[in-house]
Design a protein around this nucleic acid. Structure first.
Lengths: 124, 124
DNA sequence: ACATTATTCAACCACTTGGTTGAGTATAAT
DNA sequence: ATTATACTCAACCAAGTGGTTGAATAATGT
């Protein structure tokens, strides 16, 4: 599994910045150098360099040096962890909400049976 | 659709804190008051109150007042946006990586055919 | 050898975050 | 009416973020 200290905290934090997400998107079409990555943005090269370091810290990108060029590539592994957390949580939440929903529907049926009036509005 | 300004930035940022994720987890088993939510943590009530506000700002929880009690509940909607982004991106990334992988395998086959020497090392 | 290119490092800045404490505002209980 | 409870608001603080500029390092081109 090789899962070396993948922190949900750091991954989510790294992903929460639009510039960094754009960098990742760019990297999805293949390796790129720092300057290439920086080019589309209006900020300084140094700023982008810092963003990259954040992504690296979260293990979302890998760095490979070739001479003076640093070639960045994507590492999708941490995404799995996030995806995992999300689907797990969402299942819990919606399960609970679905149960509530069922309950409400049941009550609705009971209520409409009791009142026999059409056109009555429900709350929410 | 009702999607009122759901920001990926804010959602991911809100999720990137362990306390907040714990709060959400707690809320998956139903509504809770602020004090209830704060109870398991070692920090002050005010700190938790702030965390809740962050979650609210990201539309991950909703607040309903009943007298002096504020009842918090979960809203799973923003999670969809995140999940969506993740699966989309990951598909792109892995597609690309799989293609690369295929390429490398093909080259490996070609190389071993060409050199016919065992024990040769590949780079990285 | 010298200049250019690719990149990081270091210091700085304004702003945000995650926490604190202390006071304020409703609502509920006695 | 007083006190207790549930909560927020406001001010503060240390540490972190996202950006800047200026210099350092290291590899390449002339």
């Amino acid at each position: 599994m090789l899962t070396k200290e993948l922190s949900l905290d750091e991954t989510l934090m790294a992903l929460s910045d639009p510039t960094r997400r754009a960098i990742l998107k760019r990297l999805s079409s293949g390796e790129a150098r720092v300057t290439e990555l920086a080019q589309p943005f209006s900020m300084s090269l140094n700023a982008v360099s810092k963003h990259i370091r954040v992504l690296e810290r979260a293990h979302l990108v890998r760095r490979r040096r070739d001479g003076r060029e640093h070639l960045l590539s994507i590492n999708p592994e941490p995404l799995d962890e996030v995806a995992n957390w999300i689907v797990t949580q969402r299942r819990l939440w919606t399960a609970r909400l679905d149960a509530l929903d069922e309950l409400l529907k049941a009550e609705d049926r009971a209520a409409s049976k009791a009142s026999k009036k059409k056109g009555e509005k429900h709350e929410r």
